[in-house]
Design a protein around this nucleic acid. Structure first.
Lengths: 359, 359
DNA sequence: TTGAAAGCGCTAACAC
DNA sequence: GTGTTAGCGCTTTCAA
């Protein structure tokens, strides 16, 4: 009775291999292999016989072993910076579902801004992944080269690295910036504040430059455009708006442009709760991403949606997962337009599509 | 000049193997293997010689091949339901960092509530992972059995499956529920509403039962405790509070207990923006998780923190990643107490630790 | 400390 | 359509 109090342990069984299944089914081992692989010459009859034997033995093919011979692991590496921005969470989830549906899985690698990305890449290469998706992190040319030499394609997702030989799939950020500027202008805004992300981030840079470009075209003077940096996080948005508002003598700008929703949320929370400001009455707000949070009651953000599904489709296309022999195209850039999501942070109604198209 | 307009393609190079390195370094292939493996008998001299050759050839050990012989992949499967709740995002990120620091990676598997979890598990087993962490999904006994037979431990994270032979690491939900009840009681609450999660979720069940238990002990009558179900999502919280408040004739309950922060946020947004209610003046709120969002200006939730770091440490301990031969202990349950995070949704100040300890 | 050789479990020619 | 056989790139005895 003593046994009951001791923790129970599982007893590991010897591994069941395709040889065991072959023996039980009375066929050769290679037939077992054929039975479990798509489009291979095997009679339905023996296949069933094999499946039956496999079921009896609880046989599961060893994908590690098969990767070794086929040189395909069906694993895609996803190098992710951090998950503070819900957009990247959505992205991760969507990639995982899409890939899993086609029999592949995501191997997650984290690379913070302070981490040695090259070291992480070496780890990635060890795992013999079929492709690499990089968000937020930056990669040295040496590393992209090593990866490409091995036939492993790299896609920068939502991050454009000028001069890199890795390809890039991203939202058309500059175009979105122009659209948002136009919306604000039409709603009557004359003076502007912007909360940018990290200066090095191309995403931030492109959104800002499209936005400012359109403003300039409409005759807005440089002194009517203020900027603060928000590091693309909620807390960064909070800090940036405080810098903009604290001890302010000048009148409030008419409109605030945040380069992503999460910073807009931080900024709005501060304006609403610490300064008693109303949006859009006191100040209009526009941003980017259309994360799920942006539609919630306290925010109702007018924003440019990142066309996630289209971006993922394009990424998977560039990855050429199904015909690895085709060679890796280098340095492709795929900007995808994102739709305007009109909500409540800009007064009035959305410009019609025709108008926006001419931008 | 025509070439310039054609897309450039990377030319795949033949793979560099340990044999190539051995040849260049003038040693045997097995020495190369030794050089790259921890604690192995090799002179520092030849090791350096080999590293040098490896560097010249850009050699990276093939971990797929090594997994085949060692039967260890250094890959941990993480089966995740969905990422709508930020708590699971934090968890994913924290696991990934902790594992990566010790030379392992996460292979992500998604299993929605409608997916066939057993089919997902078969996929997991193919990849020869060293361990499996399951959140949100439920697993059949057959599958846990198959995994354990293969020597692959399974840990349910933040999910207790009574009777399962897989072990479980979780927050002590019932204790947290009691603490929150006590806080609300001390703040003067006499009537209560609760927003529960899915009925089948043990997490929700335990939090609710601890909460109600304490209420009963203090003489609160059953008719003074209302319940609505919120499916553990933001939108679910919104719907639940609307059901509770719409066409309400009875007076408002004194306090609202939500079994997680994300639903509390949905409920608060509705109460604030649609009903003009103030927290905690009109109604107190308490919840669970301490996700980063819960500390933001519009919420300031008083909540029980899920002790994520401790939970992860315990999970890694139960996984026995470093001594796989030790056998898998079955059916362990590790409830870990979560600290009370006192903010602004309950008036007054927090009960002292001594008081809470006696609960 | 080092090298030779036998696998790990599977796929893919190649014969039959 | 099926079986035989030679690897895939590595780790790990076993001898030297």
């Amino acid at each position: 009775m003593d046994q009951v109090t001791r923790p129970k342990h599982a007893v590991p069984q010897p591994r069941v291999t395709s040889f065991d299944v072959a023996a039980l089914a009375g066929v050769s081992q290679s037939s077992v292999s054929r039975a479990f692989s798509k489009r291979s010459n095997i009679s339905e009859d023996t296949r069933q016989k094999i499946f039956e034997a496999a079921r009896k033995l609880n046989y599961v093919p060893n994908s590690i072993a098969s990767s070794l011979t086929t040189r395909r692991s069906n694993i895609i590496a996803l190098i992710i910076g951090d998950l503070k921005n819900p957009f990247y969470v959505r992205m991760l989830h969507a990639f995982s579902e899409r890939l899993q549906a086609e029999g592949r899985q995501i191997l997650a690698f984290t690379a913070g801004p302070d981490d040695d990305t090259d070291a992480v890449m070496m780890r990635v290469l060890q795992y013999q992944v079929d492709g690499i998706i990089v968000t937020q992190a930056r990669l040295s040319m040496r590393m992209t080269g090593l990866s490409h030499e091995r036939g492993i394609p790299i896609i920068f997702f939502n991050r454009y690295v000028p001069g890199s030989d890795a390809s890039c799939v991203r939202c058309d950020n500059a175009a979105g910036g122009r659209v948002l500027a136009e919306c604000l202008l039409r709603a009557g805004a004359k003076s502007f504040a912007m909360i940018a992300g990290e200066a090095r981030a191309t995403t931030s840079h492109d959104r800002i430059s499209g936005f400012v470009e359109r403003l300039r075209e409409s005759g807005v003077r440089p002194q009517d455009i203020e900027t603060a940096e928000g590091f693309s996080t909620y807390d960064g948005g909070v800090i940036a708006i405080q810098k903009l508002l604290k001890d302010r003598k000048a009148p409030l700008p008419d409109a605030l442009f945040c380069i992503n929703d999460i910073m807009a949320m931080g900024a709005m929370d501060v304006m609403t709760h610490s300064y008693g400001l109303s949006v859009p009455t006191d100040i209009m707000v526009a941003s980017f991403d259309n994360i799920p949070e942006s539609g919630r009651l306290p925010y109702q953000l007018t924003t440019i949606e990142q066309p996630l599904d289209a971006m993922i489709t394009e990424t998977l296309k560039l990855l050429h997962l199904d015909d690895p022999g085709s060679g890796i195209e280098l340095g492709l850039d795929r900007p995808i337009p994102g739709p305007l999501i009109w909500r409540a942070t800009i007064p009035g109604s959305a410009p019609d599509a025709a108008t926006l198209a001419t931008l």
